[in-house]
Design a protein around this nucleic acid. Structure first.
Lengths: 244, 244
DNA sequence: CGTTGCGTTGAATAAGGTCAAATAGAGTGG
DNA sequence: CCACTCTATTTGACCTTATTCAACGCAACG
């Protein structure tokens, strides 16, 4: 397949996938240089999202998906009675907004937990370009599928793990994702509150706090508010599987 | 868009999407007559799955997704320590297997709960034809997205509902899906055991049984083993939202 | 320096889990 | 067709876990 070469302005290049350091984690993952060049025509706009602001809200008309460039997000769903369930946390290189494709409206809110930047990927353009660039089509399908698999992992966590296991799994998952982004696997800042962690894990904030303290007593971690040090990864891992 | 007309043998037609009574629930949903005709070239093989057999198992190489033609399925994930979490139940018209796209291997087991039939949809062919038939590409993306939204609904259920709410939501969800398929919304047979229901809902089988009994005492339903009659849909619905 | 939001900790409570026993169907072989 | 077996289900008594309620500490911020 030959890629038609289209000139790109300097302003566009500044934002181009082909020069983005996240390209091996994000939509361009595994694409050839030519294929990524096509993406540069697709992903030309950025959006800043301040802490506390949302990228989209449940019910908003769907028009684009977003690649996280910098920052940290949570997604949540709010029930009629006001209960609020956090359905995920998202970090750079991850794609958000795919929940909106099916109904043309977003089903979740996605809110920045710190000042953040996202790349806007207009969805109809994505579908067009995916038609020309087979690798992109494939990669997009992969990303949606992985979202499904991730969600199944969360179901497993919520459906059959005890509170300590959930928190251990949560910390190990964050650690893995940080390390994939070149950060320390053992030391990081939580961007979310205890309540948000609890909501995501199906626990109350007090339970989260207590278990952090317990892990600290057991010298598995050091917690200082939002600052986490994992002292004993294997120890945390061994907590998984103590459920029955 | 003009569809090129390709002759289809009688043997193929027998299995064709264009003559399938589920086409308004399944992959062909919303496609034009011409577009559905393209699908007839894609979905040409059927597979019988006997009760207890699996369509695919976790770890199996991914090659196709499947449209359920008849029968009933559960999907589950099994943890290293043997714990088994049911991640979904599936009925005719639904698409299963999309979890395998991302890693080229399935991440769940999907097992027939009664003798069933599935239409085999070879995935690379699907991607090819989706390139030619825009409506199909769109529709496939919709189906993946809906799977994501469904999973978020399960997260909500597991993460922030009490046991009674979970079971009420479960029954109402089944009821809705049956009615969409032309069955009674208020009377149906459960194809799964109490243990499987419990696993899906993050509850023990005894809890499921107790709550069924409680609902029966409250004249919301009649339970006779696997046979369920919903007497008071509004009553069940009002149980949702008694949690916070 | 008071206010405010977030986090920690303790004691009491409730929800659901565990263990155990009884029962009821469904399937099997005589 | 009947007796037998196996599995699924129901129900009760008791126990564990996580929640609730409440008080307090800490850090950030105006």
């Amino acid at each position: 397949m030959k890629a038609s070469v289209v000139p790109i302005s300097v302003a566009q290049l500044k934002h181009a996938c082909s020069t983005c350091s996240l390209r091996e984690l994000c939509l361009p993952m595994g694409l050839s240089r030519e294929e990524v060049a096509h993406l540069d025509q697709l992903v030309y706009s950025r959006r800043k999202v301040k802490r506390g602001e949302s990228v989209y809200r449940a019910g908003d008309p769907f028009s684009a998906i977003y690649a996280i460039r910098t920052g940290f997000f949570k997604s949540n769903v709010i029930m009629e009675d006001g209960r609020d369930q956090v359905t995920g946390f998202h970090m750079p290189g991850e794609i958000i907004g795919m929940d909106g494709i099916g109904t043309e409206r977003h089903s979740t809110n996605t809110i920045a937990l710190e000042d953040s930047d996202v790349c806007v990927i207009p969805f109809s353009r994505l579908e067009e370009i995916a038609n020309e660039v087979r690798g992109l089509q494939r990669q997009f399908h992969r990303m949606m599928s992985r979202e499904i698999v991730r969600d199944q992992g969360v179901m497993m966590l919520l459906g059959s793990m005890r509170a300590e296991e959930r928190l251990a799994a949560f910390l190990l998952n964050l650690s893995q994702r940080f390390v994939a982004r070149g950060y320390s696997p053992s030391e990081f800042y939580l961007r979310m509150t205890r309540e948000e962690i609890g909501s995501f894990l199906g626990l109350k904030l007090e339970t989260v706090s207590r278990i952090f303290s317990k892990f600290q007593e057991e010298k598995l971690i050091v917690v200082q508010l939002k600052h986490i040090c994992i002292l004993n990864t294997e120890g945390l891992r061994s907590i998984l599987g103590q459920g029955g």
